[in-house]
């Protein structure tokens, strides 16, 4: 796969339109090993679990282990819709991702702060 020259950048999508069952794809580096491709589905676009601190996450039914944090989760057209950040202990493929819309909002604020500091 690596021999094909492609633009090595992914476009940013939106997490607002995610639905249960949407196909998702990722290439990450679980357990510190080599790259590992994985497919899955959106378990719940607005996942929460009572008694936990989980809030504002995308529930991802996709493979992930320590080292997978930061894996960009893309939709069928290759747009980043979430970033894998955590998994349920003993939950197999139950993983949590930051919604990309939330990231963009935070990024905008953070960049503004940095630019103000620079001035």
């Amino acid at each position: 796969m690596s021999d094909i020259r492609v633009d090595p950048r992914m476009k940013i999508g939106t997490s607002a339109k995610l639905l249960i069952g949407d196909a998702i794809f990722s290439v990450g580096f679980p357990i510190g090993g080599d790259r590992f491709a994985s497919t899955g589905i959106v378990g719940n676009p607005r996942y929460s679990a009572p008694g936990t601190r989980w809030d504002n996450y995308v529930g991802l039914n996709i493979q992930g282990q320590p080292g997978s944090s930061g894996t960009n989760i893309v939709n069928e057209v290759g747009e980043v819709v979430s970033i894998l950040v955590a998994g349920a202990r003993g939950g197999d493929n139950l993983h949590l991702g930051t919604p990309i819309d939330l990231f963009l909002a935070q990024l905008e604020k953070a960049l503004e702060r940095q630019q103000r500091k620079a001035k």
Binding site: M1, S2, I4, V6, D7, P8, R9, M10, F25, S26, V27, G28, F29, G32, R35, A37, G67, S68, S69, G70, T71, N72, V74, E76, V77, G78, L84
Partner: peptide, 25 residues
């Protein structure tokens, strides 16, 4: 799709005592 994903994905390391350690994607 897989070609772009493959090309865009990188592994993150930090410098630790004795070398570099893989921490994230």
């Amino acid at each position: 799709l897989w070609s772009v994903l493959d090309a865009a994905s990188v592994q993150l390391y930090v410098k630790e005592f004795g070398g570099l350690a893989a921490i994230c994607s």
